[in-house]
């Protein structure tokens, strides 16, 4: 396993993926820094937790592209066929998941670091410093969100066997289209069943809803970005996200194992 991860890391470091990722991140970072320092946040006033949340939105939307590249290049591409006896020992395949998750963790932490730098430089935009517990909880939930989206994109890439489809469907998930479709379908089902009140149990499992529900009254926040405490129960949200990640990783594993017999 260690050798396989070393090999994947070598391939990643010597490909253009890292450069593309770093340049994209740098553009976002400096854009935000310029906005905070010189554009005065275009008049917006926000709390630090909101600033970090908004900054992380970029990485969470960017995940489909980077993850499909990390995962797709080494798993879906023909390189896998150079390594014999994969059906006898699945360590090579497992290493692709471990590698993707490690990169995802590093990239998510890099984004968190970027968000902290942007929100910590002296400026007139961040007008409220959240306490350490709220900040810690928000960062934890945001990193969990990154893993949810990562596992979803890995599943779609494995299922379709295509980086492009992984990326496109992943984007639809990240921008909320899939979540909205799920919610409308659930609403139709609820109405058809004659239920008058519902908390949308299926749709609230979607990562997009969890991510947005972290901020209190998202609609109101359009005029007030000063969020003093997180909305919702963090334990409940974490459990939902653990289920989400477990579900998609199990499906990915099943699809990969079935590939031999299809």
């Amino acid at each position: 396993m260690k050798n396989f991860i070393k090999a994947r890391a070598y391939a990643y470091l010597h490909s253009r993926n890292l450069i593309v990722f770093l340049i994209s991140t740098a553009i976002w970072f400096f854009g935000n820094l310029i906005s905070v320092l010189f554009m005065d946040g275009q008049g917006a006033r926000m709390s630090r937790v909101y600033g970090v949340w908004a900054y992380m939105e970029f990485y969470l939307c960017f995940i489909p592209v980077v993850v499909t590249t990390w995962y797709g290049q080494s798993q879906v591409s023909g390189f896998t066929e150079n390594i014999p006896f994969q059906m006898k020992d699945r360590k090579f395949y497992d290493s692709s998941i471990v590698f993707t998750f490690v990169l995802n963790l590093l990239a998510a932490l890099l984004s968190v670091a970027g968000a902290f730098i942007v929100t910590c430089v002296p400026n007139n935009v961040i007008t409220y410093n959240n306490d350490a517990k709220t900040m810690g909880t928000a960062v934890f939930l945001l990193v969990m969100c990154a893993f949810c989206r990562c596992s979803f994109v890995v599943f779609v890439t494995e299922w379709t066997g295509s980086r492009i489809w992984g990326s496109v469907i992943g984007m639809l998930g990240s921008c909320g289209t899939l979540s909205s479709t799920l919610m409308y379908s659930e609403a139709i089902l609820i109405k058809a069943l004659g239920i008058t009140k519902s908390r949308f149990p299926i749709s609230t499992l979607s990562n997009y809803v969890i991510f947005n529900d972290m901020m209190p009254a998202y609609a109101e926040a359009q005029t007030d970005y000063v969020v003093k405490s997180l909305c919702g129960n963090p334990i409940d949200m974490t459990l939902k996200m653990v289920i989400y990640i477990a579900l998609f990783m199990t499906l990915t594993y099943v699809v990969n194992k079935r590939k031999d017999v299809m």
Partner: peptide
């Protein structure tokens, strides 16, 4: 065991 099945899986940019 060395394996070459149809086309080699190569990293094109490397």
């Amino acid at each position: 065991v060395g394996v070459l099945i149809e086309h080699p899986g190569l990293f094109g940019n490397m």
